[in-house]
Amino acid sequence: MLNIGMRNTIIIGSGPAGYTAAIYAARADLSPLLFEGMEPGGQLTTTTEVENYPGFPEGVMGPDLMVTLKKQALRFQTEIKSEIVSAIRREADGTFVVTSKNVEYPTKTVILAMGASARRLGLESEKALYGKGVSACATCDGFFFKGKKVIIVGGGDTAMEEAQFLTRFAETVTIVHRRDAFRASKIMQERVQANPKIRIVWNAIITEILGIDVGHVTGVKLSSTTEEKHWEMPIDGVFAAIGHEPNSSIVKEIVECDEKGYVKVTPGTSKTSIEGIFACGDLQDPHYRQAITAAGSGCMAAIDVERYLSEKGV
């Protein structure tokens, strides 16, 4: 017997991949249910101008783009829940049960689009001071550091971009990098090195963020990566741009992932190791990680779902 309330597809994630999958699935009359997850709109919501998304000759603000994609998904009757999925279970008959807030949603297929999240430093003091000088979003929180001194950790393009952005507000921006060279593109490095507000501390890592006793960041403890040297630096804010990690924790036991946690798909498709589960966006993409590739793979996932359902005749 078909379970009452059995859905055609449930999409988990609300970045470009998730919303594009929703638009395609909804237009194919699959009445998708989409769970927004812990970062509604995904990584683009913490960016500023996106200049390389086709169709916007003047560029588009990342958050605007996501508001637009959500509207488009809603236009075609996507049901959206602003909740976080806690578990996915596979039933003996090949269907699935998605759990959120202790409610179980049976579904014939699942589209995984949980994306990736910015990596944190991983310090206890970082957690304790989150929102009190430790920030995960330079574009959101740079404003609070007018005339103050901040650190950004990292050596890639994102770190360079955010360092540049933070100089709009901060008096000085110190880039702390664990090696003696950046991996950022040459043009970004040149911009950073030409900026009089930016300083660079090479070969160093933060071992502790100070200020828990007074309730806001007052400084950091640093250690050299090349010699036995430790020192403290007074600082008001700490930002990190040290890469991303795929948000695959809830599916690691179900579908095959690579050693870094990216969900494995059959090349050229969105098919995971489990029939009926499809993956798209940054969650399965360690190579490109662009808004447009995420959107493209979201489209693939919805089409793969449609074909899977019609082949199964369900």
């Binding site: 509604p40 919501t45 958050p63």
Partner: peptide, 14 residues
């Protein structure tokens, strides 16, 4: 909130 904060705008409907 602030208009330039993306996550703020995403939670506005909530």
């Amino acid at each position: 909130w602030a208009s330039w904060c993306g996550p703020c705008r995403m939670i506005a409907p909530t």
